[in-house]
Amino acid sequence: MKQNILVTGASSGFGLLIANKLHQNGYNVIGTSRNPEKYGATVPFKMIALDLDSEQSISSFSERLFKEIPKLDILINNAGFLVAGIAEEIPIELGRQQLETNFWGTIKVTNAILPHFRKQKSGKIITVSSIIGLVSFPNTAYYAASKHALEGYFKSLRYELNEFNISVAMIEPAAFKTNVINNSIATINRIPDYDSLRNKIQKFSDELLSKAEDPKLVVEKVIKVVLTDQPKFRNIVGKGTSVMINLQHFAYGILEKNVLKQLNK
């Protein structure tokens, strides 16, 4: 029998690539989007409506989901967005929205699925986080905060779900060629004192993105976790990520100097 997999945010970016690959591999995939009618005819899998910013949408989507399928085997949390900008320049309301969508929205969706996983005594929760959830970089303060929060939350949750045979895993990609930057929200508030730093950050980001890898590596990592009965919690993927994490844990000062060196070029 085909496994049923839910992929949130499946209309673009990693979510679309992951959902398409899982469908090609023979899984029954259900994707979510705020506007499923816009994408339903262009994807080979079922799409249902889900808005992470709407309490009503989240509370009703579970009921709609289980009208489509009798059982869910895997939840892949992917939906979210990026707020880019100097931390002081970002309005608090926009920062709050970043946390509301990326963190609270993901938690609410997970909580909507957990009763079904507990009842069936099985399930797997895979959350697409980011290397920025482990190592922060300039211009991503609220995005980093949302991803750090997810890392901490699911790190605790995995212990609580162990007795129900529900596994929890995180995917932490580095920089990859997706549309996340193009779809990001950038603040229009500009504080002149940051102009020099802003230009250096832009140069640093352009260089980083020019060397970004093919996102199929992230898809392959997700597939590997899907196929693993007891996946490890942390699954980093991307060039230099292992070194980056080791530097953070054992020599954070060196990592900090390397980032500042790049910004001061």
Results as ranks from 00 to 15, higher is better:
residue 264 N to A: 13
residue 144 A to L: 01
residue 7 V to C: 04
residue 223 I to K: 10
residue 18 I to T: 06
residue 158 R to Q: 12
residue 162 N to L: 13
residue 11 S to T: 05
residue 29 V to M: 07
residue 251 A to F: 02
residue 112 A to N: 10
residue 184 S to P: 01
residue 132 I to T: 15
residue 78 N to Y: 05
residue 209 L to Y: 14
residue 49 A to I: 00
residue 170 M to K: 08
residue 156 S to K: 01
residue 45 F to Q: 09
residue 156 S to P: 02
residue 25 N to C: 10
residue 24 Q to S: 14
residue 35 N to C: 06
residue 52 L to W: 05
residue 65 L to S: 09
residue 44 P to F: 02
residue 122 S to T: 12
residue 94 L to R: 11
residue 107 I to K: 00
residue 134 L to N: 07
residue 11 S to P: 02
residue 103 F to E: 04
residue 165 N to D: 15
residue 115 P to H: 09
residue 115 P to S: 12
residue 12 S to N: 13
residue 210 S to W: 02
residue 40 G to Y: 09
residue 24 Q to Y: 07
residue 101 T to N: 10
residue 161 L to G: 03
residue 30 I to R: 06
residue 139 N to I: 04
residue 244 M to S: 11
residue 38 K to W: 07
residue 170 M to Q: 12
residue 192 P to F: 02
residue 104 W to N: 08
residue 46 K to G: 02
residue 179 N to G: 10
residue 37 E to I: 06
residue 93 E to A: 15
residue 224 K to F: 05
residue 7 V to Y: 03
residue 95 G to Y: 02
residue 109 V to Q: 06
residue 147 K to Q: 07
residue 169 A to R: 00
residue 5 I to M: 08
residue 28 N to Q: 14
residue 32 T to K: 10
residue 9 G to W: 02
residue 227 L to M: 12
residue 185 I to L: 13
residue 37 E to Y: 08
residue 10 A to G: 10
residue 203 K to F: 08
residue 254 I to W: 10
residue 129 S to W: 06
residue 157 L to H: 04
residue 7 V to H: 03
residue 160 E to R: 08
residue 126 I to E: 01
residue 32 T to M: 11
residue 169 A to T: 01
residue 162 N to P: 00
residue 226 V to L: 05
residue 48 I to H: 10
residue 129 S to I: 09
residue 116 H to F: 15
residue 128 V to H: 11
residue 112 A to K: 11
residue 56 Q to W: 03
residue 67 K to E: 15
residue 113 I to S: 03
residue 91 P to M: 05
residue 178 T to P: 08
residue 152 G to F: 05
residue 90 I to T: 13
residue 86 I to A: 11
residue 47 M to L: 15
residue 21 K to S: 10
residue 257 K to I: 01
residue 210 S to T: 06
residue 234 R to K: 07
residue 21 K to P: 00
residue 65 L to Y: 11
residue 59 S to M: 13
residue 183 N to I: 02
residue 5 I to C: 07
residue 102 N to Y: 02
residue 159 Y to M: 13
residue 188 I to A: 14
residue 19 A to M: 04
residue 180 V to H: 12
residue 9 G to Y: 03
residue 242 S to I: 09
residue 217 L to D: 14
residue 14 F to Q: 12
residue 139 N to D: 14
residue 81 F to W: 10
residue 231 P to V: 07
residue 158 R to P: 01
residue 11 S to Q: 02
residue 64 R to T: 15
residue 245 I to P: 00
residue 197 L to G: 10
residue 219 V to C: 04
residue 49 A to S: 14
residue 15 G to E: 02
residue 154 F to Q: 04
residue 131 I to V: 13
residue 164 F to W: 11
